[in-house]
Design a binder for these strands. Sequence first.
DNA 1: TTGTAGGCGTTATCAG
DNA 2: CTGATAACGCCTACAA
Lengths: 344, 344
Amino acid sequence: MRVTIRQVAREAGVSVATVSRVLNASGPVSAETSRRIRDVAARLRYAPNEAARALTRSRTHTIGVLLPDIYGEFFSEVIRGIDQRTRREGYHLLVSGSHDDPAEMEAALSAMRGRVDGLLLMFPDAAAQASLGDLAHDVPFVLINGAARQERASVVAMDNAGGARAVVRHLLALGHTRIATITGAPGNSDAAERLRGYREALRAARVERPAELEVAGDFTEDGGHLAMRRLLELSDRPTAVFAANDSMAIGALGAVREAGLVVPDDVAVVGFDDIPIARYVTPPLSSIRVAIDELGRLAAERLFEALEAGEDHRPTRDVLPAQLIVRGSCGATLPRAGPAHAPP
Amino acid sequence: MRVTIRQVAREAGVSVATVSRVLNASGPVSAETSRRIRDVAARLRYAPNEAARALTRSRTHTIGVLLPDIYGEFFSEVIRGIDQRTRREGYHLLVSGSHDDPAEMEAALSAMRGRVDGLLLMFPDAAAQASLGDLAHDVPFVLINGAARQERASVVAMDNAGGARAVVRHLLALGHTRIATITGAPGNSDAAERLRGYREALRAARVERPAELEVAGDFTEDGGHLAMRRLLELSDRPTAVFAANDSMAIGALGAVREAGLVVPDDVAVVGFDDIPIARYVTPPLSSIRVAIDELGRLAAERLFEALEAGEDHRPTRDVLPAQLIVRGSCGATLPRAGPAHAPP
DNA sequence: TTGTAGGCGTTATCAG
DNA sequence: CTGATAACGCCTACAA
């Protein structure tokens, strides 16, 4: 924070206005003066104070990113996508994670006032999404993975329900009729959408769906393990299971093995998310893939559009496709032991 | 950026100074006035413009984080650690990734002037570390995973060489004498340190180390696969291989299988990093674990210390321990097929 | 206990 | 082409 524009001006024998003009190419300056100023600036290692600049131009060149967490498989990929798009625009990223309750979220949001030009928000909790309302009212923002139909906000989501439907349809095509599901964390909007897709596909096929085949999970490996155990204890146990994410599916795989049964012969298992580990478990896990980084990239894209458009910008809604990745665990292909070395 | 302190003052019938005093608890204000101001501020949803605040106090309450990438297994964990420590202090994180060459780095750094109180830097490239010099000269900074002995900067690193030594000693204890290594990306300082540890341990044990047993990798799965193939083609092939990271080790596992050989019976394999997948491959991969998030956490800790100390702060140097995790791939325990469900 | 006014570092407007 | 100078929004002596 030491060398200021004033020092550069004094050293170069000009006014601060001229220095500013040269460094921002914002006005006519003689070649000679210009060169001299550049030299001095370089020698003094001058770099403008961005806080001051933000104050006068009321443009920070920074995007605020609010996520439930800023690390881990999923969020990390989202950030990657955001970063890619954002850096192309020369923007910075102010990130913030771990905001469980709305109050903490609001605090984080208000702490970003004056330091960001726009916001990228994501809350997995459906309730929080509703209370969003006018949280971010003075800068444009885009909701990532918002399930609820937001009226006033742009949303970029993934096709959770569509992915779940694809899984169930695939299992039906393989001849299964007793298809169970292990649901995600309660209150989580992704989980709710995936459950909806599961139900819709069964209903469309006129397959009955007894309540006992919907067992509650929590997105963790242990939760999936426990849930699968409950399913296997059923007198008329399911022949196929759709876990709402891969971690639970992997836990389920373990439970099946411990019960002395074989996947997919005795019970088929399919997950959701297609995390890297999915390819490596035994048997390789069938799953649903969504381009997570694209979620972030597109959200950033929409935000920049909003930034450009200004006031008269109409909310957009994008839904990213979900693709079924068939591997050994659902019985459609022969199970292959060990880590597949095949390219992704 | 709409409602300012001035509007709150007008609405509450006081001066801006009084509002500031109340909101920052920075001076005596009557209970009655205080309450009224708080009410107005809440009603107007006033939040101070942080850019302006940063300007007057020359404190941004923000830490700049410069990493080679801001996503992926490793960096994600680093950020997690940083975030944990940082949020406790009420600080924000301005992150920036993908800075390959020093020039781009310098640009990113100067763009952070006036918006951060301190910096957390990490460049895997050894050369870049050297040219660091006085890049960040006006705010305190801490180097993450800096291998070079930095004179003027605080460093938080992990014990790469120690981990590599532990691997080799373990393999020696198991009776191996032809121990190969697949090295990491050239120019990468972690890779260099791991290679150094490998050599040191062999030298200390007076085991000869022919050049053919050091084959170049690049930290990718394909690179490991290729390198292992080269090793298996040797007339006198190694009985054990230390890969400088887990991705390469997993690639190596595939190459061994394709050659019709068995891990660990024909050749033992050990990796480095202990990524989550390590537990799931067949056989489970022995590896070296370092608390990556601790790397970030500690770096943030040291930075806050420097911030507090001000000018008279002496550079620190921390080295995080590396722990050998023995699983099936090195032959010390029986290989267990399939995904282990055991807790991490 | 409260108000006035100067300053933080830049940009932008308006005269020269 | 160049130089004063008024914002930008807030904090903080200094006065009252």
